[in-house]
Design a binder for these strands. Sequence first.
DNA 1: ACCCACTGTCTCAGATCCGAGACACAAGCG
DNA 2: CGCTTGTGTCTCGGATCTGAGACAGTGGGT
Lengths: 257, 257
Amino acid sequence: MANAPAATQALAVLKLLAEQAAPVPAATIARALELPRSTVYHLLAVLQGEGFVAHLPEERRYGLGVAAFELGFAYSRQQPLRWIAQVVLARLVDASTHNGHFAVLHGTDVLYLIEERAPGRASLVTDVGVRLPAPLTASGLAMLAALPAQQVAALFPSRRALVRRHDAGPGTLTELRRSLAAVRRDGYAHEDGSVTPGFASVASAVLDHVGHPVAAVALTFPTAEVDAEARSTLAAQAGRAAARISRQIRGRPAGAA
Amino acid sequence: MANAPAATQALAVLKLLAEQAAPVPAATIARALELPRSTVYHLLAVLQGEGFVAHLPEERRYGLGVAAFELGFAYSRQQPLRWIAQVVLARLVDASTHNGHFAVLHGTDVLYLIEERAPGRASLVTDVGVRLPAPLTASGLAMLAALPAQQVAALFPSRRALVRRHDAGPGTLTELRRSLAAVRRDGYAHEDGSVTPGFASVASAVLDHVGHPVAAVALTFPTAEVDAEARSTLAAQAGRAAARISRQIRGRPAGAA
DNA sequence: ACCCACTGTCTCAGATCCGAGACACAAGCG
DNA sequence: CGCTTGTGTCTCGGATCTGAGACAGTGGGT
Protein backbone atom coordinates (compact mmCIF):
# COMPACT_ATOMS: atom_id res chain seq x y z
CA MET A 1 0.00 0.00 0.00
CA ALA A 2 1.42 3.37 -0.94
CA ASN A 3 1.88 5.96 1.75
CA ALA A 4 0.64 9.54 1.91
CA PRO A 5 2.91 11.27 4.40
CA ALA A 6 1.42 14.69 3.77
CA ALA A 7 -2.09 13.41 4.51
CA THR A 8 -0.92 11.50 7.56
CA GLN A 9 1.00 14.49 8.83
CA ALA A 10 -1.92 16.85 8.31
CA LEU A 11 -4.16 14.55 10.32
CA ALA A 12 -1.50 14.30 13.01
CA VAL A 13 -1.44 18.09 13.23
CA LEU A 14 -5.21 18.12 13.69
CA LYS A 15 -5.07 15.46 16.37
CA LEU A 16 -2.33 17.31 18.19
CA LEU A 17 -4.32 20.54 18.10
CA ALA A 18 -7.36 18.62 19.38
CA GLU A 19 -5.32 17.49 22.38
CA GLN A 20 -4.42 21.03 23.38
CA ALA A 21 -6.43 23.06 25.82
CA ALA A 22 -5.74 26.22 23.84
CA PRO A 23 -4.12 27.29 20.56
CA VAL A 24 -0.36 26.72 20.33
CA PRO A 25 2.65 28.15 18.43
CA ALA A 26 3.80 26.41 15.24
CA ALA A 27 7.09 25.52 16.91
CA THR A 28 5.21 23.46 19.50
CA ILE A 29 3.60 21.46 16.71
CA ALA A 30 6.94 20.92 14.95
CA ARG A 31 8.55 19.76 18.18
CA ALA A 32 5.72 17.49 19.27
CA LEU A 33 5.42 15.79 15.88
CA GLU A 34 9.17 15.89 15.12
CA LEU A 35 8.53 17.53 11.76
CA PRO A 36 10.68 20.14 9.94
CA ARG A 37 9.45 23.70 10.51
CA SER A 38 8.93 24.31 6.81
CA THR A 39 6.81 21.17 6.58
CA VAL A 40 4.68 22.28 9.53
CA TYR A 41 4.10 25.75 8.08
CA HIS A 42 3.24 24.14 4.79
CA LEU A 43 0.71 21.77 6.40
CA LEU A 44 -0.76 24.57 8.49
CA ALA A 45 -1.25 26.60 5.32
CA VAL A 46 -3.21 23.74 3.76
CA LEU A 47 -5.27 23.12 6.90
CA GLN A 48 -5.94 26.83 7.24
CA GLY A 49 -6.97 27.06 3.61
CA GLU A 50 -9.56 24.34 4.20
CA GLY A 51 -10.77 25.91 7.45
CA PHE A 52 -9.63 23.16 9.78
CA VAL A 53 -7.08 25.39 11.46
CA ALA A 54 -7.25 29.05 12.41
CA HIS A 55 -4.20 31.26 12.73
CA LEU A 56 -4.25 33.76 15.57
CA PRO A 57 -1.66 36.33 14.41
CA GLU A 58 -1.90 38.52 17.53
CA GLU A 59 -1.03 35.55 19.70
CA ARG A 60 1.17 33.89 17.06
CA ARG A 61 -0.63 30.65 17.66
CA TYR A 62 -2.68 28.11 15.78
CA GLY A 63 -5.94 26.52 16.89
CA LEU A 64 -8.70 24.43 15.43
CA GLY A 65 -10.97 26.08 12.91
CA VAL A 66 -14.68 25.97 12.20
CA ALA A 67 -14.33 23.13 9.69
CA ALA A 68 -13.12 20.94 12.55
CA PHE A 69 -16.22 21.83 14.53
CA GLU A 70 -18.51 21.08 11.61
CA LEU A 71 -16.77 17.78 11.07
CA GLY A 72 -17.54 16.75 14.62
CA PHE A 73 -21.16 17.73 14.29
CA ALA A 74 -21.40 15.93 10.96
CA TYR A 75 -20.28 12.71 12.63
CA SER A 76 -22.97 13.12 15.22
CA ARG A 77 -25.58 13.90 12.56
CA GLN A 78 -24.76 10.74 10.64
CA GLN A 79 -25.63 8.58 13.61
CA PRO A 80 -29.31 7.58 13.43
CA LEU A 81 -28.79 6.23 16.92
CA ARG A 82 -28.08 9.72 18.19
CA TRP A 83 -31.30 11.20 16.87
CA ILE A 84 -33.40 8.45 18.36
CA ALA A 85 -31.56 8.77 21.63
CA GLN A 86 -31.86 12.56 21.72
CA VAL A 87 -35.64 12.42 21.96
CA VAL A 88 -35.78 9.56 24.43
CA LEU A 89 -33.11 11.15 26.62
CA ALA A 90 -34.93 14.50 26.65
CA ARG A 91 -38.06 12.77 27.93
CA LEU A 92 -36.08 10.81 30.54
CA VAL A 93 -34.43 13.96 31.87
CA ASP A 94 -37.73 15.83 32.02
CA ALA A 95 -39.34 12.96 33.90
CA SER A 96 -36.48 12.27 36.31
CA THR A 97 -35.31 15.89 36.80
CA HIS A 98 -31.69 14.72 36.75
CA ASN A 99 -28.96 15.12 34.14
CA GLY A 100 -28.88 12.36 31.53
CA HIS A 101 -26.13 11.10 29.23
CA PHE A 102 -25.83 8.93 26.18
CA ALA A 103 -22.51 7.27 25.47
CA VAL A 104 -20.83 4.63 23.31
CA LEU A 105 -17.99 2.24 24.01
CA HIS A 106 -14.82 2.98 22.09
CA GLY A 107 -12.07 0.54 22.91
CA THR A 108 -11.76 0.56 26.70
CA ASP A 109 -13.20 4.07 26.92
CA VAL A 110 -16.67 5.52 27.07
CA LEU A 111 -17.33 8.43 24.73
CA TYR A 112 -20.21 10.76 25.57
CA LEU A 113 -22.35 11.70 22.57
CA ILE A 114 -25.24 13.46 24.28
CA GLU A 115 -25.72 15.32 27.51
CA GLU A 116 -29.16 16.50 28.53
CA ARG A 117 -29.10 18.87 31.44
CA ALA A 118 -32.01 19.05 33.87
CA PRO A 119 -33.16 22.55 34.91
CA GLY A 120 -31.32 24.05 37.83
CA ARG A 121 -28.43 21.62 37.46
CA ALA A 122 -24.93 22.29 36.21
CA SER A 123 -23.28 20.36 33.39
CA LEU A 124 -20.90 17.70 34.65
CA VAL A 125 -17.52 16.37 33.61
CA THR A 126 -19.33 13.94 31.31
CA ASP A 127 -19.86 16.65 28.73
CA VAL A 128 -20.26 15.79 25.05
CA GLY A 129 -16.97 14.67 23.54
CA VAL A 130 -15.44 13.63 26.83
CA ARG A 131 -13.82 10.22 26.92
CA LEU A 132 -13.42 8.27 30.20
CA PRO A 133 -12.22 4.79 31.09
CA ALA A 134 -15.24 2.50 30.81
CA PRO A 135 -14.79 0.60 34.12
CA LEU A 136 -15.05 3.88 36.07
CA THR A 137 -18.43 4.81 34.67
CA ALA A 138 -21.94 3.45 35.00
CA SER A 139 -22.40 3.66 31.23
CA GLY A 140 -19.19 1.77 30.64
CA LEU A 141 -20.03 -0.93 33.14
CA ALA A 142 -23.48 -1.33 31.60
CA MET A 143 -22.00 -1.90 28.14
CA LEU A 144 -19.15 -4.13 29.30
CA ALA A 145 -21.63 -6.28 31.23
CA ALA A 146 -23.55 -6.89 28.01
CA LEU A 147 -20.43 -8.06 26.14
CA PRO A 148 -19.36 -11.70 25.92
CA ALA A 149 -16.70 -12.54 28.52
CA GLN A 150 -14.12 -13.13 25.77
CA GLN A 151 -14.56 -9.63 24.42
CA VAL A 152 -14.13 -8.14 27.87
CA ALA A 153 -10.99 -10.26 28.30
CA ALA A 154 -9.70 -9.00 24.94
CA LEU A 155 -10.29 -5.39 25.93
CA PHE A 156 -8.72 -5.90 29.35
CA PRO A 157 -5.99 -8.53 28.93
CA SER A 158 -4.32 -7.57 32.21
CA ARG A 159 -4.80 -5.34 35.24
CA ARG A 160 -2.53 -2.86 33.44
CA ALA A 161 -5.47 -1.93 31.25
CA LEU A 162 -7.44 -0.75 34.29
CA VAL A 163 -7.39 2.91 35.34
CA ARG A 164 -8.26 4.14 38.80
CA ARG A 165 -9.39 7.65 39.67
CA HIS A 166 -10.31 9.22 43.00
CA ASP A 167 -9.19 5.89 44.44
CA ALA A 168 -12.17 4.32 42.70
CA GLY A 169 -12.80 1.72 40.07
CA PRO A 170 -11.78 -1.95 39.87
CA GLY A 171 -8.08 -2.58 40.48
CA THR A 172 -7.96 -6.22 39.32
CA LEU A 173 -9.64 -8.20 36.57
CA THR A 174 -11.38 -10.25 39.27
CA GLU A 175 -12.92 -7.07 40.68
CA LEU A 176 -13.97 -5.99 37.21
CA ARG A 177 -15.66 -9.34 36.50
CA ARG A 178 -17.37 -9.16 39.88
CA SER A 179 -18.66 -5.66 39.08
CA LEU A 180 -19.99 -6.84 35.75
CA ALA A 181 -21.71 -9.85 37.37
CA ALA A 182 -23.41 -7.46 39.80
CA VAL A 183 -24.61 -5.34 36.88
CA ARG A 184 -26.15 -8.40 35.22
CA ARG A 185 -27.77 -9.44 38.54
CA ASP A 186 -29.16 -5.97 39.34
CA GLY A 187 -30.22 -5.20 35.79
CA TYR A 188 -28.44 -1.84 35.84
CA ALA A 189 -24.98 -0.39 36.42
CA HIS A 190 -24.07 2.26 38.95
CA GLU A 191 -21.04 4.19 40.15
CA ASP A 192 -20.59 6.37 43.20
CA GLY A 193 -18.07 9.19 43.03
CA SER A 194 -15.79 7.37 40.58
CA VAL A 195 -16.24 10.09 38.01
CA THR A 196 -17.19 13.10 40.11
CA PRO A 197 -16.98 12.99 43.90
CA GLY A 198 -20.39 13.61 45.42
CA PHE A 199 -22.24 12.42 42.33
CA ALA A 200 -23.51 8.97 41.40
CA SER A 201 -24.90 7.50 38.21
CA VAL A 202 -27.11 4.65 37.12
CA ALA A 203 -27.05 3.31 33.57
CA SER A 204 -28.44 0.68 31.21
CA ALA A 205 -27.07 -0.58 27.91
CA VAL A 206 -28.79 -0.11 24.56
CA LEU A 207 -28.67 -3.44 22.68
CA ASP A 208 -28.84 -4.05 18.96
CA HIS A 209 -30.75 -6.87 17.27
CA VAL A 210 -28.06 -9.41 18.12
CA GLY A 211 -27.84 -8.29 21.75
CA HIS A 212 -24.60 -6.35 21.29
CA PRO A 213 -24.29 -3.17 23.41
CA VAL A 214 -24.13 -0.18 21.05
CA ALA A 215 -24.62 2.56 23.64
CA ALA A 216 -25.78 3.30 27.17
CA VAL A 217 -28.23 5.65 28.84
CA ALA A 218 -27.34 7.10 32.23
CA LEU A 219 -28.77 9.42 34.85
CA THR A 220 -26.48 11.35 37.17
CA PHE A 221 -27.51 12.78 40.52
CA PRO A 222 -26.00 14.18 43.73
CA THR A 223 -25.41 11.25 46.05
CA ALA A 224 -26.95 12.98 49.06
CA GLU A 225 -30.23 13.75 47.31
CA VAL A 226 -31.24 10.23 46.34
CA ASP A 227 -31.88 7.36 48.76
CA ALA A 228 -31.78 3.69 47.81
CA GLU A 229 -35.45 3.56 46.81
CA ALA A 230 -35.23 6.68 44.65
CA ARG A 231 -32.09 5.29 43.09
CA SER A 232 -33.95 2.13 42.06
CA THR A 233 -36.62 4.31 40.51
CA LEU A 234 -34.04 6.22 38.49
CA ALA A 235 -32.38 2.96 37.44
CA ALA A 236 -35.75 1.63 36.24
CA GLN A 237 -36.39 4.83 34.31
CA ALA A 238 -32.96 4.66 32.64
CA GLY A 239 -33.59 0.97 31.90
CA ARG A 240 -36.89 1.70 30.21
CA ALA A 241 -35.32 4.50 28.17
CA ALA A 242 -32.52 2.17 27.05
CA ALA A 243 -35.05 -0.55 26.17
CA ARG A 244 -37.07 1.95 24.17
CA ILE A 245 -34.02 2.97 22.15
CA SER A 246 -33.11 -0.71 21.69
CA ARG A 247 -36.54 -1.42 20.21
CA GLN A 248 -36.35 1.60 17.94
CA ILE A 249 -32.98 0.72 16.46
CA ARG A 250 -33.94 -2.84 15.61
CA GLY A 251 -34.77 -3.25 12.00
CA ARG A 252 -32.17 -0.59 11.11
CA PRO A 253 -28.79 -1.34 9.56
CA ALA A 254 -25.95 -1.22 12.08
CA GLY A 255 -24.32 2.19 12.16
CA ALA A 256 -20.67 3.10 12.69
CA ALA A 257 -19.37 3.80 16.13
CA MET B 1 4.20 27.96 -1.71
CA ALA B 2 4.52 24.23 -2.21
CA ASN B 3 1.41 22.17 -2.55
CA ALA B 4 0.37 19.07 -0.65
CA PRO B 5 -2.22 17.39 -2.82
CA ALA B 6 -2.55 14.35 -0.58
CA ALA B 7 -3.28 16.53 2.43
CA THR B 8 -5.70 18.70 0.49
CA GLN B 9 -7.43 15.69 -0.95
CA ALA B 10 -7.73 13.99 2.43
CA LEU B 11 -9.37 17.11 3.85
CA ALA B 12 -11.66 17.28 0.82
CA VAL B 13 -12.76 13.70 1.50
CA LEU B 14 -13.55 14.62 5.10
CA LYS B 15 -15.54 17.66 4.04
CA LEU B 16 -17.46 15.63 1.48
CA LEU B 17 -18.30 13.00 4.07
CA ALA B 18 -19.40 15.76 6.44
CA GLU B 19 -21.86 16.98 3.80
CA GLN B 20 -23.54 13.59 3.49
CA ALA B 21 -26.56 12.59 5.52
CA ALA B 22 -25.27 9.04 5.77
CA PRO B 23 -22.18 6.98 4.87
CA VAL B 24 -21.47 6.64 1.13
CA PRO B 25 -19.65 4.22 -1.23
CA ALA B 26 -16.05 4.98 -2.22
CA ALA B 27 -17.19 5.43 -5.83
CA THR B 28 -19.39 8.33 -4.78
CA ILE B 29 -16.39 10.05 -3.20
CA ALA B 30 -14.26 9.47 -6.32
CA ARG B 31 -16.96 10.85 -8.58
CA ALA B 32 -17.78 13.86 -6.43
CA LEU B 33 -14.14 14.87 -5.97
CA GLU B 34 -13.07 13.77 -9.50
CA LEU B 35 -10.24 11.68 -8.05
CA PRO B 36 -8.85 8.36 -9.35
CA ARG B 37 -10.34 5.36 -7.55
CA SER B 38 -6.94 4.13 -6.39
CA THR B 39 -6.21 7.55 -4.91
CA VAL B 40 -9.52 7.56 -3.06
CA TYR B 41 -8.98 4.10 -1.61
CA HIS B 42 -5.50 5.16 -0.61
CA LEU B 43 -6.76 8.31 1.13
CA LEU B 44 -9.56 6.40 2.82
CA ALA B 45 -7.01 3.94 4.16
CA VAL B 46 -5.01 6.79 5.70
CA LEU B 47 -8.11 8.50 7.12
CA GLN B 48 -9.36 5.17 8.46
CA GLY B 49 -6.01 4.44 10.03
CA GLU B 50 -6.18 7.74 11.91
CA GLY B 51 -9.81 7.19 12.93
CA PHE B 52 -11.35 10.04 10.93
CA VAL B 53 -13.22 7.67 8.66
CA ALA B 54 -14.98 4.40 9.42
CA HIS B 55 -15.51 1.66 6.86
CA LEU B 56 -18.82 -0.17 6.99
CA PRO B 57 -18.00 -3.42 5.16
CA GLU B 58 -21.56 -4.82 5.36
CA GLU B 59 -22.91 -1.74 3.61
CA ARG B 60 -19.75 -1.18 1.55
CA ARG B 61 -19.81 2.44 2.58
CA TYR B 62 -17.59 4.94 4.33
CA GLY B 63 -18.60 7.43 6.99
CA LEU B 64 -17.01 9.74 9.48
CA GLY B 65 -15.18 8.18 12.40
CA VAL B 66 -14.82 8.97 16.06
CA ALA B 67 -11.69 11.10 15.51
CA ALA B 68 -13.86 13.50 13.48
CA PHE B 69 -16.25 13.75 16.39
CA GLU B 70 -13.49 14.40 18.88
CA LEU B 71 -12.03 17.05 16.59
CA GLY B 72 -15.31 18.90 16.62
CA PHE B 73 -15.56 18.74 20.37
CA ALA B 74 -11.95 19.84 20.73
CA TYR B 75 -12.73 22.98 18.75
CA SER B 76 -15.59 23.73 21.07
CA ARG B 77 -13.47 23.05 24.14
CA GLN B 78 -10.80 25.49 23.00
CA GLN B 79 -13.25 28.36 22.98
CA PRO B 80 -13.19 30.10 26.37
CA LEU B 81 -16.24 31.97 25.12
CA ARG B 82 -18.19 28.74 24.94
CA TRP B 83 -17.58 27.80 28.55
CA ILE B 84 -18.57 31.20 29.84
CA ALA B 85 -21.65 31.16 27.64
CA GLN B 86 -22.63 27.61 28.68
CA VAL B 87 -23.17 28.65 32.28
CA VAL B 88 -24.95 31.91 31.48
CA LEU B 89 -27.17 30.22 28.89
CA ALA B 90 -28.13 27.44 31.32
CA ARG B 91 -29.31 30.06 33.81
CA LEU B 92 -31.18 32.00 31.13
CA VAL B 93 -33.02 28.89 29.97
CA ASP B 94 -33.91 27.88 33.51
CA ALA B 95 -35.26 31.37 34.24
CA SER B 96 -37.15 31.84 30.97
CA THR B 97 -38.34 28.23 30.49
CA HIS B 98 -37.66 28.52 26.76
CA ASN B 99 -34.95 27.00 24.57
CA GLY B 100 -31.78 29.09 24.32
CA HIS B 101 -29.02 29.21 21.74
CA PHE B 102 -25.55 30.61 21.47
CA ALA B 103 -24.13 31.30 18.01
CA VAL B 104 -21.30 33.00 16.19
CA LEU B 105 -21.17 34.78 12.85
CA HIS B 106 -19.18 32.96 10.22
CA GLY B 107 -19.14 34.82 6.95
CA THR B 108 -22.78 35.51 6.09
CA ASP B 109 -23.93 32.54 8.17
CA VAL B 110 -24.74 31.97 11.81
CA LEU B 111 -23.18 28.87 13.35
CA TYR B 112 -24.82 27.47 16.47
CA LEU B 113 -22.33 26.47 19.17
CA ILE B 114 -24.67 25.76 22.07
CA GLU B 115 -28.26 24.74 22.44
CA GLU B 116 -29.85 24.61 25.85
CA ARG B 117 -33.20 22.91 25.84
CA ALA B 118 -35.85 23.89 28.36
CA PRO B 119 -37.76 21.02 30.02
CA GLY B 120 -40.75 19.75 28.12
CA ARG B 121 -39.58 21.35 24.88
CA ALA B 122 -38.16 19.65 21.81
CA SER B 123 -34.83 20.57 20.25
CA LEU B 124 -35.23 22.82 17.23
CA VAL B 125 -33.59 23.13 13.82
CA THR B 126 -30.99 25.40 15.43
CA ASP B 127 -29.16 22.41 16.86
CA VAL B 128 -25.43 22.57 17.60
CA GLY B 129 -23.40 22.59 14.40
CA VAL B 130 -26.21 23.91 12.24
CA ARG B 131 -25.38 26.83 9.98
CA LEU B 132 -28.07 29.23 8.75
CA PRO B 133 -28.03 32.47 6.75
CA ALA B 134 -27.54 35.28 9.27
CA PRO B 135 -30.28 37.65 7.98
CA LEU B 136 -32.93 34.96 8.60
CA THR B 137 -32.11 34.55 12.26
CA ALA B 138 -32.47 36.69 15.36
CA SER B 139 -28.90 35.85 16.38
CA GLY B 140 -27.60 36.82 12.96
CA LEU B 141 -29.49 40.08 12.88
CA ALA B 142 -28.24 40.93 16.38
CA MET B 143 -24.62 40.45 15.31
CA LEU B 144 -24.97 42.17 11.94
CA ALA B 145 -26.60 45.17 13.65
CA ALA B 146 -23.51 45.54 15.85
CA LEU B 147 -21.12 45.55 12.87
CA PRO B 148 -19.99 48.75 11.14
CA ALA B 149 -22.05 49.47 8.01
CA GLN B 150 -19.00 48.89 5.79
CA GLN B 151 -18.53 45.40 7.11
CA VAL B 152 -22.17 44.57 6.50
CA ALA B 153 -21.79 45.96 2.96
CA ALA B 154 -18.71 43.82 2.44
CA LEU B 155 -20.55 40.69 3.60
CA PHE B 156 -23.59 41.51 1.49
CA PRO B 157 -22.31 43.30 -1.64
CA SER B 158 -25.53 42.65 -3.55
CA ARG B 159 -29.01 41.22 -3.08
CA ARG B 160 -27.61 38.00 -4.52
CA ALA B 161 -26.00 37.36 -1.15
CA LEU B 162 -29.41 37.29 0.55
CA VAL B 163 -31.25 34.00 1.09
CA ARG B 164 -34.98 33.70 1.71
CA ARG B 165 -36.72 30.82 3.36
CA HIS B 166 -40.38 30.19 4.10
CA ASP B 167 -40.93 33.41 2.14
CA ALA B 168 -39.17 35.22 4.97
CA GLY B 169 -36.08 37.31 5.44
CA PRO B 170 -34.97 40.54 3.74
CA GLY B 171 -35.06 40.41 -0.06
CA THR B 172 -33.09 43.61 -0.75
CA LEU B 173 -30.15 45.36 0.86
CA THR B 174 -32.48 48.22 1.75
CA GLU B 175 -34.72 45.83 3.67
CA LEU B 176 -31.70 44.35 5.41
CA ARG B 177 -30.43 47.76 6.47
CA ARG B 178 -33.91 48.66 7.67
CA SER B 179 -34.05 45.47 9.74
CA LEU B 180 -30.68 46.24 11.29
CA ALA B 181 -31.73 49.79 12.11
CA ALA B 182 -34.80 48.39 13.89
CA VAL B 183 -32.56 46.07 15.90
CA ARG B 184 -30.43 48.98 17.01
CA ARG B 185 -33.56 50.99 17.88
CA ASP B 186 -35.25 48.18 19.82
CA GLY B 187 -32.07 46.96 21.52
CA TYR B 188 -32.71 43.38 20.47
CA ALA B 189 -33.28 41.33 17.32
CA HIS B 190 -36.23 39.10 16.58
CA GLU B 191 -37.52 36.81 13.88
CA ASP B 192 -40.95 35.25 13.41
CA GLY B 193 -41.17 31.95 11.58
CA SER B 194 -38.14 32.69 9.36
CA VAL B 195 -36.33 29.67 10.72
CA THR B 196 -39.15 27.43 11.93
CA PRO B 197 -42.76 28.26 11.15
CA GLY B 198 -44.72 28.74 14.36
CA PHE B 199 -41.64 29.69 16.36
CA ALA B 200 -40.06 33.06 17.04
CA SER B 201 -36.78 34.16 18.55
CA VAL B 202 -35.31 37.15 20.29
CA ALA B 203 -31.55 37.70 20.47
CA SER B 204 -28.81 40.06 21.63
CA ALA B 205 -25.19 40.30 20.53
CA VAL B 206 -22.22 39.57 22.77
CA LEU B 207 -19.63 42.32 22.26
CA ASP B 208 -15.90 42.20 22.85
CA HIS B 209 -13.81 44.99 24.38
CA VAL B 210 -13.79 46.96 21.15
CA GLY B 211 -17.53 46.57 20.63
CA HIS B 212 -17.21 43.92 17.95
CA PRO B 213 -19.96 41.24 17.98
CA VAL B 214 -18.35 37.88 18.75
CA ALA B 215 -21.53 35.89 19.38
CA ALA B 216 -25.23 36.15 20.15
CA VAL B 217 -27.60 34.80 22.75
CA ALA B 218 -31.13 33.89 21.67
CA LEU B 219 -34.34 32.52 23.15
CA THR B 220 -36.79 30.64 20.97
CA PHE B 221 -40.46 30.18 21.80
CA PRO B 222 -43.76 29.14 20.17
CA THR B 223 -45.27 32.28 18.65
CA ALA B 224 -48.73 31.56 20.05
CA GLU B 225 -47.55 31.22 23.65
CA VAL B 226 -45.89 34.59 24.07
CA ASP B 227 -47.63 37.97 23.78
CA ALA B 228 -45.87 41.26 23.10
CA GLU B 229 -45.23 42.01 26.76
CA ALA B 230 -43.83 38.56 27.47
CA ARG B 231 -41.70 38.87 24.36
CA SER B 232 -40.17 42.08 25.70
CA THR B 233 -39.41 40.31 28.95
CA LEU B 234 -37.65 37.48 27.10
CA ALA B 235 -35.73 40.03 25.01
CA ALA B 236 -34.60 41.79 28.16
CA GLN B 237 -33.50 38.49 29.70
CA ALA B 238 -31.52 37.58 26.58
CA GLY B 239 -30.03 41.07 26.56
CA ARG B 240 -28.89 40.78 30.17
CA ALA B 241 -27.38 37.36 29.50
CA ALA B 242 -25.49 38.73 26.48
CA ALA B 243 -24.28 41.72 28.52
CA ARG B 244 -23.10 39.39 31.27
CA ILE B 245 -21.09 37.32 28.79
CA SER B 246 -19.72 40.53 27.25
CA ARG B 247 -18.46 41.69 30.66
CA GLN B 248 -16.91 38.30 31.40
CA ILE B 249 -14.95 38.11 28.15
CA ARG B 250 -13.40 41.55 28.48
CA GLY B 251 -9.89 41.39 29.71
CA ARG B 252 -9.38 38.09 27.86
CA PRO B 253 -7.40 37.71 24.63
CA ALA B 254 -9.58 37.42 21.53
CA GLY B 255 -10.31 33.80 20.66
CA ALA B 256 -10.62 32.17 17.27
CA ALA B 257 -13.94 31.93 15.51
C1' DA C 1 18.11 51.15 21.24
C1' DC C 2 20.07 46.77 20.87
C1' DC C 3 20.17 41.90 21.00
C1' DC C 4 18.26 37.43 20.89
C1' DA C 5 14.93 34.07 20.01
C1' DC C 6 11.17 33.05 17.53
C1' DT C 7 7.90 33.44 13.53
C1' DG C 8 6.96 33.05 8.92
C1' DT C 9 8.40 32.75 3.85
C1' DC C 10 10.92 30.91 0.17
C1' DT C 11 13.99 27.89 -2.99
C1' DC C 12 15.10 23.68 -5.47
C1' DA C 13 17.05 18.92 -6.26
C1' DG C 14 17.28 14.25 -4.53
C1' DA C 15 13.87 11.37 -2.90
C1' DT C 16 9.49 9.67 -3.20
C1' DC C 17 4.75 9.66 -4.42
C1' DC C 18 0.42 9.28 -7.38
C1' DG C 19 -2.63 7.24 -10.15
C1' DA C 20 -3.60 4.38 -14.69
C1' DG C 21 -4.96 0.27 -15.21
C1' DA C 22 -4.77 -4.77 -14.34
C1' DC C 23 -6.60 -8.16 -11.44
C1' DA C 24 -9.45 -10.78 -8.06
C1' DC C 25 -13.54 -10.89 -5.52
C1' DA C 26 -18.41 -9.82 -4.32
C1' DA C 27 -23.18 -8.60 -4.97
C1' DG C 28 -27.24 -8.24 -7.58
C1' DC C 29 -30.16 -9.36 -11.38
C1' DG C 30 -32.31 -12.12 -14.98
C1' DC D 1 -25.96 -20.38 -13.03
C1' DG D 2 -24.00 -16.80 -15.76
C1' DC D 3 -23.32 -12.10 -16.59
C1' DT D 4 -22.63 -7.37 -15.33
C1' DT D 5 -21.38 -3.91 -12.30
C1' DG D 6 -19.12 -2.41 -8.43
C1' DT D 7 -15.58 -2.96 -4.64
C1' DG D 8 -11.11 -3.32 -3.10
C1' DT D 9 -6.00 -4.37 -3.81
C1' DC D 10 -1.75 -3.90 -6.06
C1' DT D 11 2.33 -2.34 -9.13
C1' DC D 12 5.79 0.93 -10.71
C1' DG D 13 7.82 4.86 -13.38
C1' DG D 14 7.13 9.62 -14.82
C1' DA D 15 5.89 13.48 -12.31
C1' DT D 16 6.14 16.02 -8.36
C1' DC D 17 6.95 16.80 -3.57
C1' DT D 18 9.62 17.51 0.89
C1' DG D 19 12.39 19.73 3.87
C1' DA D 20 17.30 21.84 4.95
C1' DG D 21 18.58 25.98 5.47
C1' DA D 22 18.84 30.90 4.13
C1' DC D 23 16.55 35.11 4.82
C1' DA D 24 13.52 38.89 6.54
C1' DG D 25 10.53 40.46 10.04
C1' DT D 26 8.65 40.65 14.86
C1' DG D 27 8.30 40.77 19.81
C1' DG D 28 10.21 40.72 24.30
C1' DG D 29 13.84 41.53 27.58
C1' DT D 30 17.65 44.25 29.19
